[in-house]
Design a protein around this nucleic acid. Structure first.
Lengths: 224, 224
DNA sequence: TCGCGATGTATCGACTCGATACGTCGTGAC
DNA sequence: GTCACGACGTATCGAGTCGATACATCGCGA
């Protein structure tokens, strides 16, 4: 089982936890969520949905066409009412997926637990995207784990590069330099997030259950 | 034919253009070359080598054990002499690959030409790694192509994010912000490289074929 | 009215990775 | 001395992924 599938499944579960969705919309949100990092295709999404249904973590709710006939104007309108069986594919028959009780439970388990280090590393972005559904302790653990593995990798690359430096041309060198810089930048980003997260946890602990509204954003500045 | 294979093949050809290598070493250099960007596994490398051999772009030269018996001290030593047939796998029989005339020609063609835009985008890092074997005009074209597609993507993500901003939680927002920032940074990096490349081309044109040693590094500073 | 692009579900072939197998060699711990 | 362990080295396999594509409906503008 390649780790990716677990990620996708987690991401699907996480999105469906907010609202039932159909495949097309799911993919759009997924790729918006992960933004410039990653994109999933239908060839990945649909099999994953199938598997989740088979395991009883999600269930389908077939909806029919948005409106049988007319529908004069109206810009958007997402909620379809009226009744009638849609032929599944054809006449706008979309398949809406919804979390089951088992699915909700499974999602909570996955979000709270930490798999092997490699798992978290590969799928950091998805984990991060669902931080809002996780407790602070887990958040910090994940952030620090990511930081550790990033610096380890950094060290390995740097060392390996030092042993071969003289053999490489200027462009290769520049490419490496740029790569290292990007990673270093991410480490600093993580540092900011960790600090924010710690401060927040501390603040919450200090005034216990007093009426303090959470500081809303992890907003760590780092001048661009 | 997925574009990746073309990249790998180009990278292999490019590396073998400098010196004949065997698979293991090839992989090491490949992953050093691409540094923190990407890594190829044997499951990808060996089939690619096989295909290249089949198409006559590279050829194998079987070498035997580095030295028959003794070998008291000596830290490294790569060149093996002596003679004797090594049983292919077993007794250190490494398979050394070398470019053929066809391979050299093919490499030059690929490095000079530009495939479809998507090709260059996916494989920008490999193209860049072999800039030293390319002429200035091609270099600039590739850099600008990359820049264009990057900014297009940036625009698309930004626009799509603007339409959904209010629906996303703080962490998702932060993830997107970070992603955009990384891409913006890369655009600025490209700008620096393009400028350097242009200046260099200009300089070379101005003093024509006078004895001016090339400015060695594309070194664009951009304060960290 | 005709085409084109968005919406929508779904599959296929090609490609890739990580794990693993198998084997040699050098080195250091016991 | 020997034996485990990690580096070197070639090679394959299963599972997961992507891009292209197919098919069908709908809204819109030329």
């Amino acid at each position: 089982m390649r780790s990716r599938s677990v990620v996708l499944e987690t991401a699907i579960l996480g999105l469906l936890n907010s609202a039932p969705l159909h495949g097309y919309e799911l993919r759009k949100r997924l790729n918006l969520l992960l933004g410039s990092f990653r994109a999933f295709s239908y060839g990945t999404l649909y099999p994953a949905l199938k598997s989740l249904v088979a395991r009883g973590l999600i269930e389908t709710t077939e909806r029919e066409a948005p409106a049988p006939t007319g529908r004069a104007s109206g810009t958007r309108q997402a909620g379809a009412k009226s009744s009638g069986k849609a032929p599944l594919t054809g006449r706008r028959g979309r398949i809406v997926y919804r979390l089951t009780a088992d699915g909700k439970e499974h999602l909570q388990t996955v979000l709270a637990s930490s798999g092997p280090a490699a798992w978290e590393d590969e799928n950091f972005d998805v984990r991060f995207a669902f931080f809002a559904q996780t407790d602070a302790e887990t958040r910090i653990r994940i952030l620090e784990g990511r930081r550790t593995r990033l610096t380890e990798r950094l060290e390995a690359v740097r060392e390996s590069a030092a042993r071969t430096r003289e053999r490489l041309d200027e462009y290769t060198l520049e490419l490496q330099r740029h790569g290292l810089e990007q990673v270093e930048r991410e480490v600093r980003w993580l540092d900011g997030l960790i600090t924010t997260e710690r401060d927040r946890a501390l603040g919450r602990a200090r005034d216990h259950s007093a009426g303090v509204h959470d500081a809303p954003a992890p907003r760590n500045k780092e001048r661009g």
